[in-house]
Computed example of a mutant assay.
Amino acid sequence: MTQINFTVNFNELKEKLLESNLDDILKSTMVLVLHEYMKQEQTDYLNVPSYERSAGRRDYRNGYYERELLMSIGKVPLQVPRTRSGEFHTTAFEKYERSDQSFLLALVEMVVNGVSTRKVTNVVEQLCGEKVSKSFVSSLTEKLDPVVEEWSNRSLSEIYYPYVFVDAMYIKVREHNRIVSKAVYIATGIGEDAKRHVLGFTVDHEENYEAWKDFLTLLTKRGLKAPKMVISDAHEGLRKAIQRVFVGTSWQRCTVHFKRNVIDKLPKKGMQEVKNDFKRIYDATSQEEARKHKNEFIEKYEDNPKIEKAIKTLEEGFEDTIQYLVEPPIRQKFIRSTNSLERLNGEIRRRERVIRIFPNNQSAVRLIGSILMDSDESGQKKKALYK
């Protein structure tokens, strides 16, 4: 390991301190340190100090070549020592990339968090005093691709997920010089560890049965075992795909979506008592209690023509919305709706609004995958939802 004995020219440094602003001082100091580091590395490689003779000499010094290094303090010009054979290579740049990569990671994080590429380039210019192109920022974010791909293809067989949540959201993508709408399919789950996990996602065309079946099948190929329950909205293609891929799995219709559907069938005014009686149905902690409240609601309002459509909607979808009540009461509030997944969609949407239109499909996969990876990691750090 190279040991550096700093023989810095302090007169030169003093002159810089007196004549330059703080940015120039930082750059000058960094140049002096890096130059000294590289000279010492060269000496260690040659196995002989400057101007000395030795039988153990490996090579000969052969001047310098210039190289610029873009750092968080700006662009730094360096004189890199070389040897006659050309076999000596300094590790200074490699060490810099490791130590200062937090700056580059910060740029990537800005993009992932919804800051536009244009704004990121402006930030770099403000911090470094150097202009960088949009392609420079894009090339940084492209480094996420293999990371996202590895995470997206990871095995799901190590833990069992009794409860799986699925939903889709729409984004706009530029494709073949056209702007098209694409569906983002997302699956999350609560594992046996009682923590939330992001299981997977894909970006596909219009939401339909075939697309849902392909997505769910992909999850099973990665090791996802048939869950006890899948929670989702009432999309017909999704329901059919769940039945086909997860034989014997219960389907829980999201109670939040369903209650909204029922209430939308009610008149806008004078319905507060009706709404309170309806919501009481879902305060139950068992299916028997929920059915009892439902029957009481129908008996009370079945002769009211204004409530007729709401009652019909309730009767048609009711049983699918109370499947969560067969589970222990401590778990029920976590599995009766897709609210947790809706919040995750909201996080994606918040960042997606800045971009508005993804330049291509891969950029959408990159950004959404990064957000989901972060959410999955955060979920593992939280306490269990229940015991």
Score class of each variant (00 low, 15 high):
71 M>F: 03
321 T>V: 10
155 S>I: 04
248 G>N: 12
352 E>K: 14
324 Y>K: 01
353 R>S: 08
17 L>C: 14
98 R>H: 14
186 I>E: 04
286 S>I: 06
134 K>W: 12
135 S>A: 14
106 A>G: 15
306 K>W: 07
378 S>K: 15
177 N>A: 13
336 R>Q: 14
165 F>H: 04
347 E>V: 13
221 K>P: 08
64 Y>K: 09
267 P>R: 03
77 P>I: 03
172 K>A: 05
165 F>W: 05
87 E>P: 10
313 T>M: 12
237 G>E: 01
383 K>Q: 15
73 I>A: 05
281 I>S: 00
218 L>C: 10
280 R>N: 13
349 R>P: 01
73 I>N: 01
317 G>M: 04
227 P>V: 04
155 S>L: 05
236 E>M: 13
55 A>W: 11
332 Q>H: 04
9 N>T: 01
7 T>L: 14
117 T>Q: 10
376 D>L: 08
31 V>P: 00
331 R>A: 09
146 P>I: 06
233 D>Q: 01
246 F>Y: 13
39 K>T: 06
386 Y>D: 03
256 V>R: 09
112 V>Y: 08
69 L>Y: 08
338 T>L: 09
98 R>S: 12
141 T>M: 08
39 K>F: 10
253 R>N: 01
138 S>Q: 11
75 K>D: 08
62 N>Y: 12
161 Y>W: 06
216 L>C: 04
103 F>E: 07
372 L>K: 01
212 W>F: 07
55 A>D: 14
107 L>A: 00
257 H>Y: 11
309 K>T: 07
297 F>W: 02
368 I>S: 04
120 V>F: 09
198 V>F: 06
135 S>H: 10
374 D>A: 13
288 E>W: 03
112 V>H: 07
240 K>Y: 08
211 A>W: 04
351 R>C: 06
128 C>W: 05
37 Y>A: 05
140 L>S: 00
5 N>H: 15
156 L>N: 02
10 F>L: 14
248 G>Y: 06
268 K>R: 12
23 D>E: 15
128 C>P: 09
91 T>K: 15
262 V>E: 08
323 Q>E: 15
382 K>G: 07
272 Q>L: 12
159 I>L: 15
309 K>H: 12
318 F>G: 00
261 N>P: 06
189 G>K: 02
80 V>N: 03
